[in-house]
Every structure is written in structure tokens, then in C-alpha cells.
Amino acid sequence: MDALIDLLPELWTATYETLYIVAMTLFFGGLGGLLVGLGLYLTRAGSILENKPLFFVLNLLVNFIRPIPFIIFLAAAQPLARAVTGSGIGNNAIIFTIALAASFAMARIVEQNLLTVTPGVIDAARSVGAGPIRIIFTVLLPEALGPLILGYTFIFVALVDMSAVAGYVGGGGLGNFALLYGYRQFNPIVTWAAVLLIIVLVQFVQFFGNYLARKALRR
């Protein structure tokens, strides 16, 4: 317990770092997921921008990357992270790699949520002369907003998980804190303090996500 009190400043720094990494990856990964997910949805057979070759490529890419265990992806994507961010380790590299992995995970969730929009409402929008861009922003995204918020809440939890694993390659955060000060120094109380903070964080975000989704779905 005394060890934990001594480590409090480090714990707060780690919490802040986790929040930072998660926020950045949620933004970039979320955006990437939205784009790839929309791409999958719009280019599939029978959709408004049907494009079989593009769909095939996107689908293959998502199926290729998604099953790779994150810790292996982290190592495999290191050269790419280095090329993009200038370093293979540290928070920026971590953010890049997590955002990349999250994009493909999120893409499927976005695609699935968009598929819940009744094709009929898209027909209705087309019948009054709406074009594809307008349909995306005025029909698809608003109609799927509730499930999309829940999807993003779900991916948030996955991001916290990924950010903790990223402690292995020099990323900061609660995962790194638990490994460094708790697990390796045989101090379970320190480990559990980090775990508790993660649980509180996830609970809070899940609660908030549910609230927003309820508002979007009006129920």
C-alpha cells in the first residue's frame, strides 16, 4: 500500500497517458473505420456506389488485418510506424499502430451498422433526387447513429485494451504502469490499482455511450 502511495504521481501520469492514447486513437481509428466501413457498405453489390473490384480489395484488406493478434500486429507494423511517425517506439508510434488496427476493426462494425438501415429509406431519398454524398450525410449516418454510437463505445474498450498491450513496445499508460511497477516488482496492489482505474474508465465511457445511443434512438 505504501508503495502505491509513493507511486501516485506515476499513476496519474499513466492515467493521463492512457486517456491521451485512447482519445487520439479513437479519433484517428474512428475516422479511418468510418471511411473504410462506408467504403465497404457503399461499394457492395446492390448498393448506391456498387464497385465490385473496390469492394473486393477493401474486404480482403479488412479480413487480412483483423485476425492478426494485436501484439503481433504491433511488432509487424513497427517499420511502417517508424516510416510514418519517425520512431518505432513511444506514444506516437503506438497511436499510429493502434489507430491502424482499430480502423479495420471499426470498419466492420460501421459496415454492419449501416446495413441495418432499411434499403427502402435509401430508395425514398433517391426518389426525391438525392445524390450519394447527400444520402450518406442525411440518411445513412443519421439513421444508423444509435448503433454507431454503441459501436464506437465498444471499440473504445478495445482501444483501452490495445493501449495497455502497447506498454510492451515503449508506450506509456496504465498497462505499462501495471507491468512495470506491479507485475515485475511482485506488487499486486499496484497492479490492481491500475486495473481498477481501467475498470472505472471503461464503466464511465460505456455508461456515457449508452446514454448517447439512447438519446439518438429516442428510447
Binding site: 427502402g120 429509406v121 430508395d123 425514398a124 443519421p142 439513421e143
Partner: peptide
């Protein structure tokens, strides 16, 4: 099926 926009 009417096809109204449920979000509006």
C-alpha cells in the same frame, strides 16, 4: 413500408 426517415 412508408420509408420515412426515423431520425427526422
Amino acid at each position: 413500408q412508408f420509408n420515412l426517415l426515423g431520425s427526422r
